[in-house]
Amino acid sequence: MAYYRRVGDVPPKRHTAHRDGEGRLYREELMGEEGFSSASSLLYHRGVPSALVDSTIWEIPDVATTPNHPLRHRHLRLHELFPKDTWASTDVVTGRRLILGNADVRLSYAVCTADSPLYRNATGDEIVYIESGEATVETIFGALHARQGDYVILPTSTTHRWLPKGEGPLRAYIIEATGHIAPPKRYLSRYGQFLEHAPYCERDLHGPTDVLQATGTDVEVLVKHRTSRGLAGTRMVYAEHPFDVVGWDGCLYPFTFNVHDFEPITGRVHQPPPVHQVFEGNNFVVCNFVPRKVDYHPQSIPVPYYHSNVDSDEIMFYCGGNYEARRGSGIGQGSVSVHPGGYAHGPQPLAYERSIGVEFFDELAVMVDTFRPLELGEGGQACEDPAYAWTWAGRHA
């Protein structure tokens, strides 16, 4: 983030004494990326933000992975992972199940109605896409309202918790980076402002508007972090509540962006996936395919041409409408297709010609392309459709 925001009570000059009405000094905390050379914010606490009283092991959800070998296209049916009788005992943090992962990014899924514990991911930024339902996301910066179609962007080490709301369950597709996530550089000026050709802008990003000023003692926070042997978890207990912040300002904070605020870029003939890009991280990109008018040339073929992504794996999460290119393959709401680098994929044979003359696609999908191979997590292995790889040939294994 490069967009300044100020919330709550902050002093006129940074790194100067800031006191409450009774003269008590607030504690200033700098939260910043890349040492002191990138985006940061200054938060003002009533208590001491580093005051720990306990630290014990937290067993994080299973992050073991299995190679995609033998190499094949795969179809994962995420809606099979969480039967209705598990929703009340599942939360977005401890109940998420790993679908796919590598050293750069992990993709997980959760369906839940339970509140999460306080949580901090110290390994990288998180994007949580809300497939359905709604929630309040309480953070050290204040609260966010998350609704269907929202991306919730949580910077590294943002202490937060998820509180689902409403009648239905919260369905959350979680993208965890090992590093930071940002808008594509080609959308931004050299000073960080969205340019006129960008498909979204600052007005579409919604950050906290007020601080929480919570109180409490001996408050537990679950922390995911790195060790020399990989990912691990620690259960930290703080002397005072981390949400005791009275104000903050800066350019680093959580925010939401709704997929329906993305303005699609179209052309006379089929446009390649980079026009759908919404975010980028280290060795991966995030794209969204939204309802849109398609190609204008009278002989255009609106569905994608067959293509071999020789340098990347393509992961598509289908979350609305009817994805024209894969109609007839078994893909539906809640599906994830895994098209690995190394050989071709594309539309169903009948979809290729059927799309000629079509003027509008009513589809919604979130795509993650990675530049290192992805492996299958336990959740991905548990919900695979074994017949998918052979659907282009009209055969079954």
Rank of each mutant, 00 (worst) to 15 (best):
K13I: 09
T16R: 06
D20G: 05
D20V: 00
G23H: 13
S40Y: 14
R46L: 02
V48L: 08
L52G: 01
E59T: 04
P67G: 13
N68S: 06
R72Q: 11
H73E: 10
V93K: 02
I99P: 08
G101H: 01
D104C: 11
A110W: 07
R120Y: 07
N121V: 05
V128D: 12
V128H: 14
I130N: 11
E134I: 05
A135F: 01
T139S: 12
I153H: 11
P155H: 03
T159S: 03
W162C: 10
P164F: 01
G166F: 12
G168T: 02
L170G: 04
A172E: 09
I181L: 00
A182N: 02
G192T: 07
F194E: 03
H197Y: 10
A198M: 08
C201A: 11
G207H: 12
Q213M: 14
T227F: 15
G230E: 11
D244F: 13
Y253F: 14
P254D: 03
R268S: 14
P273I: 02
G281Y: 08
V285S: 08
C287S: 15
P291E: 12
R292Y: 09
P298S: 01
P304Q: 01
Y305I: 13
E314C: 04
G321S: 02
Y352A: 13
V368P: 12
T370H: 09
R372P: 06
R372T: 11
C383V: 15
C383Y: 09
C383A: 11
T391A: 10
